[in-house]
Design a protein around this nucleic acid. Structure first.
Length: 454
RNA sequence: GGUCCCUUCGUCUAUCGGUUAGGACGCGAGAUUUUCAAUCUUGAAAGACGGGUUCGACUCCCGUAGGGACCGCCA
């Protein structure tokens, strides 16, 4: 059996860290097992789905390097859903209901107020032919529910356990006796996710459904749908959801955590992928060289069942470590986009001091552009200027020069280097001066030591 | 009101009844016989609480507390 997985976002917004974790887990599993990763746009909610969001999702996945073998869209598969629905109607598993959304809402509130679970009372199922005709004569169009197999008389629900062996959480059970029959067809004739997802998973040959734990109850219902449809269900794996650095739910502020905004912040795709794939697992959160390397580490039993904490600060730290280990060939394109030159020598010198790639711009400005030197110790820099070697510069120049300056000034350690760093770079921190010196060149160094803008 | 899941260093986690409770990030220290950073080495740091089962519990059971999720004509 070839592994086939799908990532099924609905194009009602851009991708965020939570989404991307699901996408990644699917992609990594497919990659590791030599399987296929599909992108399925779940756009059954026509009110909220847009083409712009679909484009955004593709662009986010693409940027992260999560290539998909094929794209499917639910809006293009309506005939399949109609056929499956007809089949279920013939089996007597779908029944028409005539309540309005308002009526259902009031019903739920009433149940809750009385301390009862907000479960649909199956009024639609109890309707007689004449009653239905009367309702339709009133101008009502029905929506359709899937009758859960959870009772003996067909009406009163009994505790009914549906179970499966979850890829991530082990044995799982859902009591479908305490659930409402799900609406699968809206009054306007469009289909709902619970249903379309099952039809698609069956027909597209999905072997493993990896999704967030917000779907575990759905899985109980959907397992019954697979059965009613006469289809073999895929294996299911539900990962925990992300919580914020403060330990509370993330869902309220996902906007700030969109891939789009993280990209704008200058974070590396590999850092985002490594972080979201590694938090909540027993693997160390460390810089990965590629998605393939991440895939080699992938294993369902490393994923923990408790909620994982997403800390933007930790992501940033990982981003820095990813950069520190990035070879020039991989950084080159990004540097060019930022207008940073200097080649491999420059990259080698500064990469250890970057948190995000764009930090290189400031260093390039210091090396290539003009800065105002900061004179902390006039006497020392004057001496340094006087002792500056004349001839051609190479990587021994620094040692020769500093040895001479050390002897002449009697300075060492911080008293020696701090004033030099300030004069040469205008900053208190930065890469090794020895590496920076040849990049600066004699002229610039001399000018800055003399306190001139250069 | 109901159902499900989770709780070990600050953080992510290992441990599948007997361990000096291990690793990673972060933090501290040292080294790089010359600053900050990077890098390397090293150190400190943990079983939510209360019961029970057991010769023995982080591990199993019950309860409490805290956290997460679901109960939609959203996905």
């Amino acid at each position: 059996m070839t592994v086939t997985v799908r990532f099924a976002p609905s194009p009602t917004g851009r991708l965020h860290v939570g989404n991307i974790r699901t996408a990644l887990l699917n992609w990594l599993f497919a990659r590791k097992s030599g399987g296929t990763f599909l992108l399925r746009l779940d756009d059954t909610d026509l009110q909220r789905s847009t083409e712009a969001f679909a484009d955004g999702i593709r662009s986010d996945l693409d940027w992260l390097g999560l290539v998909w073998a094929r794209e499917e869209r639910q809006s293009a598969r309506t005939d399949r859903y109609v056929a499956a629905a007809e089949f279920l109607k013939k089996q007597g598993r779908l029944y028409a209901c005539y309540e309005t959304e308002d009526e259902l809402d009031r019903k739920r509130k009433r149940q809750l107020a009385r301390g009862l679970p907000p479960i649909y009372d199956r009024s639609g199922l109890k309707l007689t032919g004449p009653e239905r005709a009367a309702l339709e004569a009133e101008g009502r169009t029905p929506h359709w529910r899937f009758r859960l197999a959870n009772s003996e008389d067909g009406f009163a629900p009994l505790p009914t356990i549906v179970s499966w062996n979850d890829l991530i959480r082990g044995d799982q059970t859902v009591d479908v006796g305490s659930l409402s029959d799900p609406v699968v067809i809206r009054a306007d004739g469009s289909f709902l996710y619970t249903f379309t997802s099952v039809v698609d998973d069956a027909e597209l040959g999905i072997t493993h459904v990896i999704r967030g734990e917000d779907h575990v109850t759905n899985t109980g219902v959907q397992l019954q749908l697979f059965e009613a449809l006469g289809k073999e269900p895929p294996a299911f794996g539900h990962h925990s959801l992300l919580i914020g650095a403060d330990g509370h739910a993330l869902s309220k502020r996902l906007g700030a955590l969109s891939i789009e905004s993280m990209r704008a912040e200058g974070l590396e795709p590999l850092a985002i992928a490594s972080y979201t794939a590694l938090i909540g697992t027993s693997d160390a959160i460390e810089a990965q060289h590629s998605l393939d390397e991440l895939a080699r580490h992938f294993s369902f039993d490393k994923i923990s069942t408790g909620p994982a904490r997403f800390d933007p600060e930790e992501l940033k730290a990982l981003n820095a470590r990813v950069l520190h280990a990035t070879p020039f060939e991989q950084a080159e394109a990004g540097l060019r986009r930022l207008g940073v030159g200097g080649g491999a020598g420059f990259w080698q010198a500064v990469r250890g001091n970057l948190t995000v790639m764009s930090d290189a711009v400031a260093w390039w400005q210091i090396v290539d552009g003009e800065i105002d030197p900061k004179v902390e110790d006039a006497a020392l820099v004057e001496q340094a200027a006087a002792l500056l070697p004349a001839a051609t510069w190479d990587d021994t120049t620094w040692d020769v020069w500093i040895a001479a300056l050390k002897t002449a000034s009697g300075r060492k350690g911080k008293a020696l280097f701090h004033p030099l760093r300030l004069a040469l770079t205008g900053r208190e921190d930065g890469p090794e001066l020895k590496a920076l010196l040849p990049l600066l060149g004699r002229e610039k160094v001399l000018a800055r030591l003399q306190g001139r803008r250069a």
